[in-house]
Write a protein that binds this DNA or RNA. Sequence first.
DNA 1: CAGCCGTGGAA
DNA 2: TTTCCAAGGCT
Length: 345
Amino acid sequence: MLQSSTFNNSLLEWYHSNKRDLPWRRTSDPYKIWLSEVMLQQTQVITVIPYFTKFITKYPTLQHLADADEQALLKDWEGLGYYNRIRNFHSAVKDVKENYNAEVPDNPDEFFELKGVGPYIGGAVQSIAFNHLLAAVDGNVLRVMSRLNEDSRDMTKAGVQQSVKKEIEEIIPLEAGDFNQALMELGATICTPRTPKCIMCPVQEHCEAFKRNTVNNFPIKKKKTKKKEETYNVYFIVNDAQEIFIYKQEGDLLKGMYELPKYDVDTNIENIEEELDVRLDDKRIYIGSDKHVFTHKIWYMESYLLHTTSKNEYFVPVGEVHELPMSIAMKKIFRKFAADEFAEL
DNA sequence: CAGCCGTGGAA
DNA sequence: TTTCCAAGGCT
């Protein structure tokens, strides 16, 4: 049923008269379009807008961002989450600067090779910026398509998403960029997850689920696994020079962001002293308790203030800590610390 | 493929 | 409070 030009025409006509005025729709610069798509991954439009505005002001060209310092980029990304996105984008942009004369490749095969470019971003950027006939399948599109076709497959499976992408590419019109954006816009504003506004839908007559009154049964998605809970003690270790022990996080979670020493609750102080190479006074002051929820885990954190006479390369003046990129989890703890009188130690 | 990777808002 | 999920990609 989608193989009809009336579907495409109805959708595009609706889009052109109803699309929101979003900052990335005011540009035809492939670099800015690409940046917006990276920011929009798993992130709502309303959240992205201020970050996008800040980035295109501070890094107005691909060249500017390629030449930027990674820690500065992470600081500007702070609070947006999924921090590997900006690290990968930085890497990809440097790649473009070196190997493509700082011009975003107008070529799907070349573009898909870049770091952080998957099926969605590749299709979105190549269709919107260069009008290649590729689909951009995101959560909105999967939901819309599953309802249009009463598609009972598990939409969380990569294979199903690939299949939907191919189905769209068989019927995608020459205005591929607008078509992709129209499908997403429809999902974001009309064909919403809960209480969809079918009465307002421009392609209502093409929708199998609407015809059979089964819209609320779609999309079919596998349940998410339960979050794992972890409890830590977090330490503000301050020396006599008003410096605090803080370091850059390694591993996968929050990589590149700074964090305070954080240990399982049963870790001995002696072990911490040895690992951090500091001597800690016996006295410790309780600061507070915080909870932070990630996609797949929950941190419960108890924070304490400790005094030391030690000093090493991991100590940073308390007044300079705000310049370092930090996760929201750490920022929550710091808010309590800032309100505390640590000078009493 | 399944699990991992942030954060905030809505119902 | 709990659950879902938002212009997904990597390993």
